[in-house]
Amino acid sequence: MATILCYGDSLTWGAVPNGGRYMKQLRWTSILDELLDKEHQVINFGLPGRTTLWEDPFRDGRVGVTYIQAALETFGPVDVLIIMLGTNDLKRHFNVGAFEAAKGVEKIIEKARMPNSQDFPAPNIIVVAPPNIMSPTGDMAETFSGAVEKSQYFHQHYQNMAMNNDCLFLNAAGVLQASQADGVHLDTNGNKLLAEALEPFVVKLLS
């Protein structure tokens, strides 16, 4: 039985557009577990508001690069690490774009591959470029001001970074769109499509 750690933000955690959390069986991590016939351990370690490496003045404990090594030791040994982060990096108060988000994911990859106190082997890594942000609504319209255009470059920068770091790459925007309800999070169909797109990647790494 292999361990697959899904390291992300609210899109991985299972946030319902405009509030709430999907029931466990509707989250893409659980759907992936089903597609793998529950033969492996798929761990949802998503956290709403998590960034790659930016300290959020409004939310504590959200820096992805800070906690990746602890996560890998907590759940280790981890065979496959799926990283889907960067959406929160595009919040207005960080003032960065997709290029910087990709560099943040690269730092997480570097940390994930560093020696650890348990001598666990480094995991195989799948980098997922987050879906494009589509016309945020409500409070998120202000929070993600300017992010719609910036998110169009996720694919380009993440693909280049993944290739340079010998990781498998999936462009989420190529298989799904963010929910029209809030322009940021995944609807139930988006969760299903993401799981279905990731399943062959995981199978390839475990074969």
Rank of each mutant, 00 (worst) to 15 (best):
N116T: 04
F75Q: 10
H157P: 05
F144E: 08
F45M: 15
D166F: 12
A129H: 05
C167I: 05
L11H: 07
N191M: 03
L206R: 01
T143K: 11
M163W: 14
N171L: 01
V63P: 09
H93W: 09
T137C: 05
R113V: 06
R113S: 05
Q156M: 15
Q159N: 08
P17E: 14
R27I: 04
V127F: 03
I68C: 08
V80A: 02
D139T: 14
S117G: 13
F144C: 05
N95F: 03
P48M: 13
I109Q: 04
I82L: 06
D187G: 01
I4Q: 10
E100N: 04
L36G: 12
A173N: 12
M161L: 12
R92P: 00
P131W: 05
L81T: 04
L53D: 15
A122N: 10
S207R: 12
Y67S: 14
Y67W: 10
L193F: 04
S179G: 01
G138H: 04
R27W: 05
I125T: 04
A129M: 06
T12M: 09
A71T: 06
I108H: 11
A197Q: 04
N18Q: 15
H157I: 06
V78N: 13
I83G: 01
T12D: 08
G49N: 08
S179K: 05
F45E: 15
I125S: 08
C6I: 12
A98H: 02
S30D: 05
I125N: 02
E149D: 15
M161V: 10
F99M: 11
K150W: 04
V80L: 00
T52G: 04
A129K: 03
I125W: 09
F45S: 15
N164F: 14
G76H: 14
Q156G: 11
L35Q: 05
D89A: 03
P123R: 09
H155N: 14
V63G: 06
P130Q: 00
M23Y: 12
F45C: 15
L198H: 03
F201I: 02
T29M: 00
